[in-house]
Simulated assay, not measured.
Amino acid sequence: MNKIGRKTLGLLFLLVGGIFLVQQWSSIGFSDMFGYIWPILFVAIIIEVFYHYRLKEPEEPLRFDKGAIVVLVLALLISGGVQNTQSSGFGTFQGSSIFNWWDEGISVSYEESIDINQHVSEIHFDIPNAKLRIVGTDEDQLVINGTVRANENNESNVMKVFEKARITESKGDSFLYHVERPKSSWFSFNDHLHVDFVVSIPRDRMVDVDVTNGSVDIVNIDENIIIKTTNGRVSADEISGDALVSNTNGTISLRNISGEVEAVTTNGRVSVNNIYSNATIKTTNGTIDLESIEVNGNWDVATTNGNVTLRIPQDSDVSVEGKTTNGSVSGDLDWIREKDTNFFGKSNEGSAIHNQGTYQISTKGTNGSISVSLLE
């Protein structure tokens, strides 16, 4: 007798294969699509149970394929976790999540103002479960406006929990704003404390942000920025210094970065507009889209599963190297090919020198295409 779970497992393999194929010919990342398969699998396994129930003999028990069920449960959890990141505003798409069917806790409005001494040159944020928008200003103050949410029964207790977890410290030339992670119940799917803050800081200070399970938006900073997130979206705009961004599950969006750029994420798309120095941009599961009105540095761009799209000015002085395993290398440049076309009639490698070839652009991929076009 055919055991329950095998047909749905076959459907899972078809879906994953279909996602890989779609990814080859579109700009949608693998993780963006994979986050939407859990409802399909959930419905499919229910249908399969009813189907076997109707076909079996009255005294015959239902039989499950244990291996298939284990794989399906893991796929459901991973897909739901990916979409939980996306539906929280961290990913590319919005939607409902398998882990986000309810929202517990009480939210309380919160305001705070802290004077930042002139000798402080670095501001550090270490906040779990946070949605932060950081804005640089000309004032020597750190000003917070937003909300605090906790799984408490009244607003007073919410504030007690937050004040107990909140730590501010000035040490040497650094200022630290830290929120400790309170212990939460084993039976709760939600973490105990969440913050949603708009933070104004002096624009002429270096900023270091470490957020777990949350998003970070930062604008109008004259110094270097360092941003690290685990499950969340990162965006930065109008940064005069260097930008070092590290992410695990989430997208990265950078605009108008004057200094050097290093943007690395594991599962997520990377979008970059207008950079003016050296850049290293890498992702494992996601597309990379880079457009700049100037090229004034060397670029190292790489992804494992996803397409790479570069758009550069006509007057760029660049030397471009492009190589991918499963995909094509194409665009407006005069490509030099060392190999013939692949099985699909496309070339998966190429090099080109445009104008003087001053700056080096290296683009690499595994499952995806590479395109380099010239802006009008």
Rank of each mutant, 00 (worst) to 15 (best):
V16H: 13
G259M: 05
W299I: 01
Q314L: 08
T309F: 15
V264L: 13
E155H: 14
T147F: 14
F93V: 01
N84R: 01
T304V: 09
G146I: 11
S121H: 12
S170H: 15
V211R: 02
G368N: 11
G365A: 05
I353L: 03
A130H: 08
N231I: 06
I226S: 10
F99M: 00
V135M: 12
Q23W: 09
A302Q: 10
S88M: 06
T230M: 07
F99I: 00
F42A: 00
S369Q: 08
L76W: 12
Q24P: 00
G350W: 03
T309R: 11
S174Y: 12
E291R: 13
G232V: 04
S184R: 11
P58L: 14
A150V: 06
E338V: 00
E122H: 15
N278M: 07
R6Q: 12
K171N: 09
V329P: 00
G105T: 12
T92K: 06
F90Y: 13
G365S: 06
I114H: 10
G306T: 03
N224H: 15
W335Q: 00
F90I: 04
L9F: 05
M159L: 13
V120E: 02
D115M: 11
R203M: 11
S316W: 10
N157F: 12
G268P: 06
D204L: 06
K3I: 03
Q118W: 15
E223Y: 13
I123G: 00
N273A: 14
G286V: 04
A236Q: 04
I144K: 02
L21R: 09
T366R: 06
N273H: 15
G95S: 11
I275K: 02
Y110D: 00
I4H: 14
S121M: 05
R203D: 04
I227R: 03
S107M: 10
V108R: 05
V209I: 11
L176M: 14
F13I: 02
P39M: 12
S316K: 04
S371D: 09
N285P: 14
R269W: 10
T280V: 01
